[in-house]
Deep mutational scan, measured.
Amino acid sequence: GAPPLPPYSAGGREVTMKKGDILTLLNSTNKDWWKVEVNDRQGFVPAAYVKKLDSGTGKELVLALYDYQEK
């Protein structure tokens, strides 16, 4: 199953993602919540729920390892 959710501390809205989604990583300075862009929406997802990909394009991409439903 998915890892436990860290307390929400990102101070911005969250976004929903599905397992297998490829998201653009915008900011990973917060260790628990990373800012991503998905379907032209920006928001935060739990860092433990995604994995960085080596895209080779200069853009940082992450793979959704679990479904996440915004609150």
Rank of each mutant, 00 (worst) to 15 (best):
G1K: 12
G1M: 09
G1I: 06
G1N: 13
G1A: 13
A2D: 07
P3N: 05
P4T: 11
P4Y: 05
L5Q: 06
P7M: 08
P7T: 05
P7H: 12
P7Q: 10
Y8I: 11
A10G: 08
A10Y: 06
A10R: 07
G11L: 04
G11W: 03
G12P: 06
R13H: 13
E14A: 14
V15N: 04
V15Q: 04
T16H: 13
M17V: 09
K18E: 06
K18V: 11
K18N: 07
K19T: 06
K19G: 04
G20C: 04
G20Y: 03
D21C: 05
D21W: 09
I22C: 04
L23R: 01
L23C: 08
L26D: 01
L26C: 05
L26E: 03
N27P: 03
S28M: 09
T29N: 14
T29F: 08
N30A: 08
N30D: 11
D32L: 09
W33Y: 04
W34P: 00
W34G: 00
W34I: 04
W34E: 01
K35Q: 10
V36D: 00
V36S: 00
V36W: 00
V38H: 15
V38N: 13
N39C: 10
N39R: 13
D40G: 15
D40I: 05
D40N: 15
R41S: 12
R41N: 13
R41G: 12
Q42T: 10
Q42R: 12
G43E: 03
G43P: 01
G43M: 06
V45R: 00
V45T: 02
V45G: 00
P46W: 02
A47F: 02
A48Y: 06
A48M: 09
A48H: 08
Y49P: 01
V50W: 00
V50E: 01
V50I: 06
V50Y: 00
K51F: 06
K52V: 13
L53Y: 08
L53D: 03
D54Q: 11
D54T: 13
D54Y: 09
S55G: 13
S55W: 15
S55Q: 11
G56M: 14
G56V: 13
G58F: 08
K59Q: 14
K59P: 14
E60C: 10
L61P: 02
L61Y: 11
L61H: 07
V62L: 10
L63Q: 10
L65C: 05
L65A: 03
Y66L: 04
Y66W: 13
Y66D: 03
D67P: 05
Y68R: 02
Y68P: 00
Y68S: 02
Q69P: 15
E70R: 08
E70L: 11
E70C: 08
K71W: 11
